[in-house]
Design a protein around this nucleic acid. Structure first.
Lengths: 359, 359
DNA sequence: CTGAAAGCGCTAACAA
DNA sequence: TTGTTAGCGCTTTCAG
C-alpha cells in the first residue's frame, strides 16, 4: 500500500467536517481547542498518515528550527565529541543540525556560511578554520541578525557569544607543572597565533616562564599545523639540537604523541630526558607510553552549552548581552612529565573538577 | 543597514518591469530566456541581495536536496571519518546533511527516522545501532519510496543498497595471519552477532581455524560491547585462565588496545606471550606499543560512496537494482602479532591496495 | 521569448 | 471554541 500523495491538514479537516485552522491548532496542541476535538483530530491524523510539512510551515513562520554548524574538521576526537554535544542539545529542543566542514580553509568556511544562510538556519555555531583572519564572510548573517555562537576557536567580535575554556590559564598551569618538575628549558609547539586557543596557550607559557625567572627564548617556540607529520619534524629538530630542551609543551595531543614516539625511537627516555605535555585529553593520551600529561578539554559540554545557549537566544529573543561562557578545564598529570616521582600511575593523580563558570 | 525584509522574485520583477516567471526562469538559468535578460536579472538579484527561498521552492517541488544520516555514534574515529566522506560527497553535489545520533539505541534510531522523515529528506544513509534486530521502524520511509542506503552495519533487506567491506574475508585473513605466526589457541572478541560486521568477522575466524585443523572452541569467543572497559575485563579473564590463549583477535582497535595495556601492566609481553590483533586501523593502533596489527577500513571512502550512490539514485530515479558495494580492506601487519620475526617495523610491512570493487 | 495565474500546505488575524 | 481567508515565495502550465 504505497501512496505518494501526502495527507494534508485539509484532508483531515474535510474528513472530519472541521476547518483547517482547527486542525492546525489541534495538531500544535493549542489551548484554544476542545480536548475532545483535539483527540479526534490527532487520531484521524495518525490513521491517515499525516505528517507535518515543515516547508509550508517554515514558509509561513520564517523559522526553520535548524542550526547551522561550521567546523574546521569532523574527524578529530575533540570535534566529533563537541558535535555530539551540540547534537544532543539540539535534539532535546527539537532542533535539527546542518553541518558543514571548512577543512581548515577560510574559503570553504565562507561557502559554508552561504550554504547555511541559504538554508535559512535560525542560528550558527562555529569553530573557525586555521587561518581565518577576519570574519567579513559572516557579514551576510550578521546583517540579517542571525545569531552566531563561536566555540573553541573564536574571534574577538562585537557581541558574538563564545564558549571556550581559559586557554591562558591552562597553558600557564601546565608549564608551571613542568617547572615544578625541574624543567628549565621548555619548548612550546603551538598553532597559528591568529587563533585564540594557540595564542592564549602561548601567553600562558610565557607568563609561567616569567614568573619563574626563566628567560623567554623565541627559538624554543615552534608554530606549525600541529599534525602528526609536524611532530616527526619537531622530534628530528630536537635530536639535532646541541642543547635540547628538557621539556616540550605541545598545544595538542596528537603532535605530542607523535613527538614522543619518535624521540623514543631515537633512544631518548620520556620523561627522564625530555618531559612532554599535550592538550585536549584525547583517548590517545592514555595509550601512549608513558601516558601523556595533558589538559582535559570538556568537548561535549562545550558543544552542548553552545547549542543550548544559541537555542535560548532564539527562543527568547534576548540575545542581547551575553559575551563569554568559560568552562573549567583540568590539568591531568600523567607519567610523561613526572620527572621527580617516577611512581606508577594510580588513582588520585588525575584531578577532577567540573563546574560551569559563566560570565 | 540591516534589513529583515527578504527580497523576493516579485521585487526583482517589479523593479525591472518583468514578470516573476521570467525572473524565476532566469535565476535557474532556464534556456528559454534571452541571454541579455538573464544578465540583467542576475545583476539586479545580486544588487538587491536576493537569496533563493528553499522553503517556497521545496514546497513546490517536493524535493529538499537534503540527506538524512543516522549513525550509532559520532565520536569514534571510524564514524567521524565516514561522515567526513559523506559530507564531502554531499556538498560536492549541492546536498545538505541532517545528522542524527542513535547512541546505539534502537529507540533513538526510530526517533531519528521520524525526525528525518518529517524533515522530508530526499534519502537516508544509515549505520545501524548495536542491537537493532529489525527495521520495522523504517517502514514509514520505505512506504514513501524514500531510498535508504546502509553502510558498515547493514541488514539483509529487500532492495536496500549497502556499502560495506568483506568482513568475512578480513576476519579470515587476520586469523590466518595469526596462525602463520604459530598461534593455535586464538581468542576472539566480537560484538553483537545481529550486526553483520561482527557476525562475518566471527565466521571468517571460524573458517580460518577450520581450514587449519584447529577445533572451534566456543569458550574462546567473547561477545560484548567492545568498549574500553570490556577490554579490561577480558584482560583480567585471560590472566585468570589456566591455559591462556596465545592470540586474541578483537573486532575493533579500541578494545584491542585496552587489552594490550592491561596485559602489559600485568607483566605479559606482547606478542611473545600473546599476540593481539584489532580491526579498523584507527590512529590509536599506531601509538600503542607494540603497534597493533589490524585491518584498514576505508571509512572515508565508505561514506563518500554511500552518499554518491544515494545521490545518483535520487538524481536519476534509477534506484532499481543496486544491491551491494564492497570496498577493499587491507590487512595491516604490525608488531603486535609478529611472533616469528621480531624485527623493527619498517616500510614494506604495511601492504597497500586500494581499489573499488563494486557489484 | 515573456506573462498570467494557480497552487504547494500551513498559519494567524479576524470574524463569528 | 471554531471558521474564513489571505498570504508566505516559488514554479510551471498555458496562453500570448
Amino acid at each position: 500500500m504505497k501512496s505518494n500523495k501526502e495527507v494534508t491538514i485539509y484532508d483531515i479537516a474535510a474528513s472530519l467536517g472541521l476547518s483547517p485552522s482547527t486542525v492546525s491548532r489541534a495538531l500544535k496542541n493549542n489551548p484554544g481547542v476542545k480536548k475532545e476535538t483535539k483527540k479526534i483530530i490527532n487520531e484521524a491524523a495518525q490513521k491517515m498518515g499525516y505528517r507535518h510539512n515543515k516547508f509550508a510551515s517554515n514558509l509561513r513562520l520564517k523559522r526553520t528550527h535548524t542550526l547551522g554548524v561550521i567546523v574546521p574538521k569532523l574527524n578529530s576526537y575533540f570535534m566529533a565529541t563537541a558535535i555530539t554535544g551540540i547534537e544532543s542539545a539540539a535534539s532535546r529542543f527539537g532542533y535539527n543540525l546542518i553541518i558543514t566542514n571548512s577543512l581548515e580553509s577560510t574559503k570553504k568556511e565562507a561557502e559554508g556560511v552561504n550554504t547555511l544562510y541559504n538554508s535559512r538556519v535560525d542560528g550558527l555555531i562555529v569553530s573557525l578554520a586555521y587561518d581565518t583572519d577576519n570574519i567579513k564572510h559572516f557579514d551576510i548573517v550578521f546583517k540579517k541578525d542571525i545569531p552566531v555562537i563561536f566555540f573553541d576557536r573564536v574571534i574577538e567580535n562585537k557581541g558574538c557569544a563564545k564558549v571556550i575554556i581559559d586557554n591562558f590559564k591552562a597553558g600557564y598551569e601546565i608549564v608551571n607543572h613542568l617547572i615544578s618538575q625541574g624543567c628549565r628549558k621548555i619548548m612550546h609547539v603551538g598553532g597559528n597565533l591568529l587563533r585564540n586557543v594557540y595564542k592564549d596557550r602561548l601567553l600562558g607559557y610565557r607568563k609561567a616562564l616569567e614568573e619563574n625567572g626563566i628567560a623567554y627564548d623565541e627559538s624554543l617556540v615552534i608554530i606549525n599545523d600541529l599534525s602528526d607529520k609536524s611532530g616527526v619534524e619537531i622530534a628530528k629538530k630536537i635530536l639535532r639540537m646541541k642543547e635540547p630542551p628538557d621539556a616540550v609543551f605541545t598545544a595538542n595531543d596528537t603532535t605530542a604523541v607523535s613527538i614522543i614516539l619518535h624521540l623514543k625511537k631515537a633512544g631518548l627516555s620520556i620523561p627522564k630526558d625530555i618531559a612532554v605535555a599535550g592538550f585536549n585529553n584525547e583517548p590517545i593520551s592514555r595509550v601512549i607510553e608513558p601516558n601523556l600529561t595533558t589538559v582535559h578539554y570538556p568537548a561535549f559540554e562545550v558543544g552542548e552549552i553552545a547549542a543550548t545557549t544559541l537555542i535560548n537566544m532564539l527562543d527568547s529573543n534576548r540575545n542581547a548581552y551575553l559575551s563569554s561562557i568559560i568552562l573549567k578545564h583540568e590539568l591531568i598529570i600523567r607519567e610523561s612529565t613526572l620527572k621527580n616521582t617516577m611512581q606508577e600511575q594510580g588513582p588520585g593523580i588525575e584531578t577532577i573538577s567540573k563546574e560551569l563558570k559563566s560570565i
